[in-house]
Amino acid sequence: GHLNIIKVAQELGEVMIGLFTDKAIASYKRLPFMSYEQRKAVIENVKGVDRVVMQETPDYEANLRKYKPDYMVHGTDWREGPLKDVRAKAIAILAEWGGQMVEPEYTKGISSTELHVHLREIGTTPQLRLAKLRRLLSVKNIIRVSEAHNALSALIVEKTEVKDPVRGTQSFDAIWLSSLTESTAHGRPDIELVDLSSRLKTVNDIFEVTVKPMIFDGDTGGIAEHFTYTVRTLERLGVSAIIIEDKTGLKMNSLFGTDVSQTQDSIESFCNKISLGKKAQVTNDFMIIARIESLILKKGMDDALTRAFAYMKAGADGIMIHSKEKDQAEILQFCKEYQKLEKK
């Protein structure tokens, strides 16, 4: 389809390609399989292309005003759907200097969406899946993650889509392998009773039928010396991240709050666990996310923020804050104060 458009553009003059960044594409559809740099290298080597320029938003205004082309060439597929208004705006801008919109007929039977479906059927590699979560976080302000506890529930996460007339097709970005629901699926209490070997079998079952990145709920992470082996194993399989909570002793579900005895780990001990985990990983793509239980255990906002800062300094790639409250006020307050912290 794009080659057909380039052929039409060649007949009109020098061909400049406005190439969307990953962030621009992810703002209205799924993250592209190839990174911007990879796509740019391909397009630069297509016969008939004279120049490739970065397009940072789905709105063409910035590049149109910067380069003031005589013609803009785009397929007819954007006459309807979420880009209809973008098209109208582009035509209006071109008219300011007498530029024209040229729209070759959309090439039927060739679709990136269909290609995505076929690639999903083929599968992915551990390395590609592992790196995808960091790519998503780098280009999207918010990512959508849904829980799974076996291959069937993961397929639901993988294939669920919502058609939005304004924002286009929306879907989940990643899978959360929950220890709570996996324990429940095994008929066991949520006390780290399901061992790592059993949980790794679930990871493999899910990876057999999906291509989305996975965040692994690692409970407390176990003792620090064992945690390093967990990190290496998950990273080797292609898991993108592990989340561990700063509790010690017999793990109880956080939603019990102070109704049951729960012991929060010391800052020093938990930082050591994070540090050892980061040293154990092989790639820069794997992530360790620290989950803070201070609000659950009624230790206050200051304690939560102190721990967040310490965990980041220890090497944590992200912070998860947990609350038992029925409204969002406590979480939003933490997020507001967290933004003020001096990041590592």
Rank of each mutant, 00 (worst) to 15 (best):
A174V: 01
E158A: 06
A148I: 00
I156Y: 07
K163C: 14
G168E: 10
P165T: 06
R167G: 05
S146M: 13
D173G: 04
W176N: 01
A154L: 10
A151K: 09
N150L: 14
I156P: 07
N141W: 12
A174K: 00
R144N: 08
K163L: 14
P165V: 03
I156R: 10
W176T: 09
P165G: 03
L155D: 08
L152R: 15
A154Q: 04
V139I: 06
I142V: 14
E158L: 02
I156M: 11
R167D: 05
T160F: 13
S171W: 07
S179T: 12
L152W: 14
A154W: 12
P165N: 05
V157R: 03
E158M: 09
I175R: 00
N150P: 07
V145E: 02
N141K: 13
V166D: 03
P165E: 13
F172N: 11
S146Y: 13
L177H: 10
G168H: 04
I175F: 07
S178D: 05
I142P: 03
V145Y: 01
A174C: 06
G168I: 08
H149I: 05
V162D: 09
I156A: 09
P165W: 07
N150H: 08
T160A: 10
V145M: 02
E158T: 01
G168M: 05
S178T: 13
A148L: 01
L155S: 11
S171C: 11
P165F: 14
A151I: 01
N141F: 02
N141S: 12
T160C: 11
A154I: 07
V162S: 10
K140P: 01
